[in-house]
Amino acid sequence: MSRMPLYLKERIEEINQRALLFNYETNTLPKWEKVIITWIALAIFWMIVSVSIHWQNILIGAVVTFLVSLLMYDMFTSDIRRKGNVAIKALRIIFLYVPQYIFIMAFRLVESNLKVLKHAILMDINPGIVKIDSDLHSHTGLTILANSITLTPGTLTIDTVRGLDESKIYVHWIDVETLDREKAGAIIKGGLEDWLKNIFW
């Protein structure tokens, strides 16, 4: 292996990466697991919405949410892949990643609002549409990244193009600082993408 030419090595690494992504793409959960995940999420939502904890309420909620999850089981579970220990992963997501995300986004949101106030008063804008790269490949990950970019200071997502090798995001930037794609990506995405790579693929 050590005498392999350099270009061949790069090619093999690229093929391995693509095989891994195809593996992710085809390796979906079976149907009954999707139904159970949807049922748990909808039952928690039912208990929050209907305030009482009477047994009649719980009975109706269980039946109704089971029927709904039989009908709509692949709505938000189509991007979940089994990898590693499920319980540890779920606990880590709930107690570590989601509070981190809320903490980061709260401060970014307030900062972006104050920036809009500054721009609205001073009118020192220099808008333009730029293109940045992203390493995320799943629908849900790209969507959450795009929505987070919309809420961070000075940027608005126009379109996303999803591909297996690289995804691109078109961003309307209210104050264009640089036209270089990687520098712009580093400024716009910040630490969000590294954070999202923990959960989505």
Partner: peptide, 9 residues
């Protein structure tokens, strides 16, 4: 893509 995934969720 964004609209499709958000409506699905």
């Amino acid at each position: 893509n964004v609209v499709r995934t958000t409506t699905k969720m």
